[in-house]
């Protein structure tokens, strides 16, 4: 027959007992309801309101905001840049992340501890500090900036440039990709690679023919995750991208806090949600299916 079924707890029969079993979820529902669902609804509704540009919101429903975000070339360029940055970051983190993830999964001892520190430390450091570090490195005239030659500008070095932004974003999200890849590589039977080695395959060959094909699940999941996060990051685009490389997230902040154009900000937030949410949604569905085939 099938594999042994996981034992279920005794299900209470009485209606009230069954209801009581859900009681522990009450704090969760309360918190999420008030601080998550409700705010999302507010944003969704606000996106359709009209603003007269002076911080006053008139509850006349309109699609102007969306028209602006998706039609006006300035805003559209923001959407485009957000998408592009997210996509490129997903790719760069995948390429750089794989070797580390593999090394992390297969190493022991000193190497492993070193790798763990290298991956965990950035995760636990505030994004401000990480961005700050890149600001120092990207300053004009440093040895680092000179490495990049023509890509850097005279006045601001690598700051406010697209390559600079990508480097910083990659750094920001690399741990996330590594963790996702690590998860699948670790589950991979080392005997596959060992078998390939006995059949004459070198390290690169083993990677390309064995590890890569068998871990595409983790790769896709990681890329979706990085894509969703990259599209929504604020600090890095703000500090590193600056005024030349604006994205949706930074614009939302400006519209909300400085320009007080809440409907427009909300519309942008909704668009951002769609972009990031789609990726995140696909990821969740994937994870659920993967999780059930344990």
């Amino acid at each position: 027959m099938t594999a042994p079924r996981r034992p279920a707890g005794p299900t209470p029969d009485r209606g009230s007992a069954r209801a009581a079993a859900w009681l522990p979820l009450l704090p969760a529902f309360l918190l999420y309801g008030v601080q998550f669902v409700l705010p999302l609804l507010i944003v969704a509704v606000m996106a359709f309101m009209t603003s007269d540009g002076t911080g006053v919101v008139r509850p006349t429903p309109t699609l102007d905001n969306f028209a602006k975000v998706l039609g006006d070339s300035y805003y559209l360029s923001l959407v485009g840049r957000s998408l592009l940055v997210a996509l490129v970051t997903a790719i760069t983190t995948a390429i750089i992340g794989y070797p580390i993830a593999w090394a992390l999964a297969r190493s022991r001892g000193v190497w492993r501890s070193l790798l763990l520190v290298a991956v965990m430390l950035p995760l636990m450091t505030s994004s401000v500090i990480r961005a700050f570090g890149w600001m120092v490195l990207f300053a004009p005239g440093t040895w680092f900036t000179t490495l990049f030659g023509g890509l850097a500008t005279e006045t601001t070095g690598l700051l406010y440039t697209f390559p600079g932004l990508i480097i910083a974003m990659t750094h920001m999200l690399l741990p996330m990709m590594i963790l996702s890849l690590y998860g699948v590589i670790e589950k991979l039977e080392p005997s596959y690679e060992e078998a390939a080695a006995t059949l004459g395959s070198g390290r690169v060959g083993r990677f390309l023919r064995i590890v890569l094909p068998l871990t595409t699940g983790g790769l896709v999941a990681g890329m979706l995750l990085v894509f969703a996060s990259a599209a929504s990051l604020f600090v890095t685009p703000r500090l590193i991208g600056g005024p030349k490389q604006r994205v949706l997230a930074t614009e939302i902040y400006d519209q909300t806090i400085m320009l007080l154009n809440w409907p427009l900000a909300s519309a942008m937030a909704v668009v951002l949600l769609v972009l990031a949410g789609l990726a995140g949604g696909v990821y969740s569905v994937m994870m659920r299916r993967v999780g059930s085939t344990r």
């Binding site: 027959m1 042994p4 034992p7 005794p10």
Partner: peptide, 18 residues
């Protein structure tokens, strides 16, 4: 054998299965 119901029987007696 597995699938013969012996585990179901035991778990029913214990009370984990109704």
């Amino acid at each position: 054998r597995s699938g013969s119901g012996k585990t179901t029987l035991l778990r029913s007696i214990a009370g984990f299965i109704k």
